[in-house]
Amino acid sequence: MSALSRFLDSDFVYSFRRSPVAVVSAVVVLIIVLCAVFAPLVSPHDPFDLASISLLDSLKPPVFLPDGDWSFPLGSDDQGRDVFSSILYGTRISMIVAALAIGFSLVVGITVGLVAGYAGGAVDAVLMRIVDVQLTFPAILIALLVDGVVRAVLPPAAQDALQLDVIVFAIGISRWPQFARTVRGSTMIERGRDYVMAARVIGISSPRIMVSHILPNVLGPVLVIATLNLGLAVLDEATLSFLGVGLPPTQPSLGTLIRFGNNFLFSGEWWITIFPGLTLAAIVLSINLLGDWLRDALNPRLR
């Protein structure tokens, strides 16, 4: 309990409360995350339940337009699915993919960064050249490439089962170099500090020094980049799905919804694509603003 009260009394929480942008972004992110987690409870329809979908309900406009009604608050698509419910489920999938992808990136990036920064020399040179090479390509290109290669390698049966894993891997592998670079830089600084020398003098093993002494001391900047990248990963997933190489229509993410809705944009049923688009924009914007605030809050020199 005292840990909690100490946290609530910290500079970190103080600076959070003083920043309206951070509070609003956090509230938006929180609402979206809660809605996504509790999608089955919140949404009025189940877009996956074929029995409840009726073609008679197709292409209904949102509630505020003349023909709209409350059973489809944000309208329905050409199959008669509720757009609002689809968005909730879609956000859920988008968030899961982004979180897993960044988690994967973090594990790879932090490991590579710690080893490169701590070992130095040839190990560092080799690992960082890999990073450099990958950084010369746009992340989305790497993700597309990995996605394509993995799909070509996997047998068709495995492809369907592993669709989510493939996209998580593709996005994750496209974003780790940033983490590796940041961690490596900070590690090199920390390695020269006296407390690391002291730990070596005490006889603590190198892996242990890296994990229990250096890692906690380099996590600050990593946290900031992870937050900013989470927003970008949502966008990556949407882009891949929009291009049709991401998740299948049976597991519609925000990107998939936007892609399908796109076909109706010029025939007047704009709500099918605009609402998922707005949701996506809100998520990415909030996460980015939160990341910006976090960067400022964790850097005493910017305050």
Partner: peptide, 24 residues
Amino acid sequence: MRAIRGRHIGAIFQDPLTTLDPLM
């Protein structure tokens, strides 16, 4: 050597402000 350091030969450094891990 690692097994000897700390166990058989200890060391104390000049600056106590920096020889402790700030986050542990």
